[in-house]
Amino acid sequence: MLELFSFGEKGWGDELAFGLLVTIQLAFASLPVGLALGFAAAGASLSSLLPFRLLGRAYTTIMRGMPEILTLFVVYNGIGILLNILAAWWDPEGGSIEFSPFLAGVIALGLVFGAFAGEVLRGAFQALDKGQVEAALAVGMSGTQVFFRVKVPQVWRFALPGLGNLWINLLKDTALVSIIALDDLMRMTKVAVGYTKLPFDFYLVTCLIYWLMSIGSEVVLARMEKHANRGVKRS
């Protein structure tokens, strides 16, 4: 039994570890994309200009209402078709090009994360105490100083629990890219199952790996929250 999961020729340990690495890379590559989109969406939703507000609302509403797997297919097939049209226009005899599933995964997962993060960050910005901003301005801080020294630390504190949940969702959603043939943990498991005919054992181990990653994330996030709240008195 243990031999099956060993590293090297006989076992599937190294294949699974390779897939795990792809999963982790995908999650960490999507996170900054999603956070940037989230800040942009929050900024747009809170803008004083109506077109920006509408754009922000439309993005978060549509993205949150669509199944993640549908978003993934739209991005993967959509950009794939677009690229081929462009390629055919550029060089009619060039033949078709393949759109990278990894990149499609990063874009799709980033878009989904960004839509939810936009709502979390909007709530956090709205929860800011106006008096503090006024106080900071009154002691002569510049706009940039107010943003980085007063607003950001507090928004971070308010948004961290929500963003933490989104990170765990992101980690789990990476499993979807196995459907568009990216060699992540989920797909390597499928390959192993194909050879060994032991689907239950392998999927159970894969579930346990994801579970460990989620629990590990929760532990780290709890520490980050504690650190972010270090200056707050508890009643």
Binding site: I168, M186, T189, K190, P199, F200, Y203, Y210, S214, I215
Partner: peptide
């Protein structure tokens, strides 16, 4: 803590 896709595969393929 686990992806729903993994749970689905565990039940659908795993039952085999």
């Amino acid at each position: 803590g686990t992806p729903m896709l993994a749970q689905l595969f565990l039940i659908y393929y795993g039952s085999g």
